[in-house]
Simulated scan of single mutants.
Amino acid sequence: MSKIYILLCLFLLVSCSSNTPDPNPSPQETMYFPPKTGDVWETKSIADLGWKQNAVQPLLDYLTLKNSKSFIILVNGRIVMEQYFNGHSASTPWYWASAGKTLTATITGIAQQEGLININNKVSDYIGTGWTSLPLAKENLITNKHLLTMTSGIEDIANGDNVSASKLTYKADAGTRWAYHNVYVKLQDVIAKASGQTWSNYFNSKLRDKIGMTGNWIQIDNNSVYWSTARSMARFGLLSLNKGKWESTTILNETYFNEATNTSQNINLGYGYLWWLNGKSSYHLPQSQLQFPGSIIPSGPNDMFMALGKNDQKIYVIPSKKMVVIRMGEAADNANLALSDFDNVLWQKINALYQ
Rank of each mutant, 00 (worst) to 15 (best):
L141K: 14
G100I: 03
M306W: 11
K186C: 00
N54P: 00
L337F: 13
E139G: 02
N344G: 07
E114I: 02
I117T: 08
G212Q: 08
D343C: 04
G77N: 09
S133Q: 10
K69P: 00
Y126W: 12
A307V: 09
I296W: 01
G87N: 12
I110G: 02
V56A: 07
M31V: 10
I251H: 05
Y170P: 01
G272F: 03
Y32M: 04
Y271A: 03
Y226C: 02
Y256K: 11
E254R: 15
I107A: 02
N242I: 02
L13K: 13
F11Q: 12
K314F: 11
A90T: 14
Q219W: 12
F85P: 02
I297L: 05
N140R: 14
S2W: 07
Y283N: 05
Y170S: 04
N266D: 10
V163N: 12
A179V: 03
G196C: 08
Y84I: 09
Q291V: 15
N201C: 02
D343P: 00
V80Q: 09
P27S: 13
F292Q: 11
N144I: 11
R177Q: 03
L141Y: 06
C16G: 14
N144Y: 00
L134M: 12
T229Q: 08
T129D: 12
M306R: 10
A335P: 01
V56C: 04
S133H: 09
V324T: 02
S15P: 01
W275H: 04
E247K: 15
I326N: 03
D173W: 06
F71H: 08
I220S: 10
V14T: 14
I315M: 12
I117S: 02
K167N: 12
S133L: 03
V185Y: 09
K101S: 01
I72L: 13
S91I: 13
T43F: 04
I267P: 01
T149L: 00
D312N: 15
S340F: 08
N262D: 04
Q348R: 13
P35Q: 04
N76D: 14
N266Y: 04
G300E: 05
V317W: 01
I296A: 06
Q28M: 10
L103V: 14
I157N: 10
T132Q: 06
I296D: 00
S195M: 06
S17K: 15
I72K: 10
I154T: 07
Q188E: 13
G244M: 09
T250M: 07
G128S: 09
L241H: 06
L13I: 15
Y184N: 04
V185A: 02
T37Y: 09
K69F: 06
I211H: 08
K314T: 03
A97V: 06
